[in-house]
Design a protein around this nucleic acid. Structure first.
Lengths: 166, 166
DNA sequence: ATATGTGCAAATCTTTTGCAAATTC
DNA sequence: GAATTTGCAAAAGATTTGCACATAT
């Protein structure tokens, strides 16, 4: 069972084969258009989230931000994350609670992708597929539910751990 | 925005159209086979989870159990949930954090199904589809990841709320 | 100038843990 | 009888909130 202190995340988009391209649009512009006040702290946090290849939890985000603005506070981080989430600019993930109950955040992408958490080594892999988009379409058509947020998380063994433990 | 005190859950399996049948096998037998000691508390909790049409959180489960055994403790509930989760007998859900950060649990079913949380009225709908199973197969084939747990959660507006707010 | 956002500290909520007593096999 | 599980109370971890001060438009 994985029990390391850090998520061994080499995930970077495209680590696994996938058939859909992922792109991330600019968040600050979007916020301005929505009439949201842009503060020093928000600019900083949004920049970090947008640039980061990793899934950040609130505390990690705080520590990265502190390198630029040593006075920034954890409460501000949480308030900003909440704002971005409510405006649909970031997705919130649990990553199968591999590291306790905290949440992880990432800039919303053009097409939804699933996250695979390896119970063996703790790696987080991403995978985008047109079949996922197709499944969402099917559900909407079939049930009449209008999807605003979609989260597909898988837990199991990555290719390497699967071979080791088999 | 939904802000009621209880999840308005009329979900009962099969509320929405779906193309895959869901069945729930017996947990106690499975536990015995796995050599797990069956205590009074475990028997009670497992029975409640198995019978419940709703997604239970730890505290709700405790209160239902207290009607039978007024001494049962919240720690025991958490320890039992943890046992069942690790043995693959129940699934853990977040239901899009519609009601804070707590988790919800349900007996694992023969085929995975997705949970749709309505931001309008708080209803939780379930939907099982062969396309979901097919997507999992595709991901496994394509990435080599061996899936042990799958969780697909959608947030948005149910059919009724979609019409009201459109 | 005024509404809004921030830092700080305390509070809240959920889940986990240490330990002595009770229970199951 | 020995090993495991439980209840209780306390601790831990993540997130939220009240309020006085600072900032953006």
């Amino acid at each position: 069972m994985f029990s390391g202190a850090l998520i061994a995340n080499g995930s970077q988009l495209g680590r696994s084969k996938q058939d859909t391209q992922i792109t991330r649009p600019s968040m600050l512009e979007e916020l301005r258009e929505q009439g949201v006040r842009i503060t020093r702290q928000r600019r900083l946090l949004v920049g970090i989230i947008q640039d980061s290849p990793r899934h950040l939890d609130a505390f990690t985000l705080l520590n990265i931000a502190k390198q630029e603005d040593s006075d920034i506070n954890l409460a501000t981080v949480y308030r900003t994350l909440s704002l971005l989430k409510n405006r649909g600019l970031i997705d919130e993930l649990d990553l199968m609670h591999l590291q306790g109950e905290k949440h992880y955040y990432e800039a919303k992408t053009s097409s939804d992708h699933c996250h695979m958490a390896c119970f063996g080594c703790g790696a987080i892999l991403e995978y985008a597929s047109s079949a996922f988009e197709e499944l969402k379409r099917q559900i909407t058509t079939d049930s009449g539910f209008q999807i605003q947020v979609a989260r597909l998380e898988l837990g199991g063994l990555c290719e390497k751990c699967g071979k080791t433990k088999a």
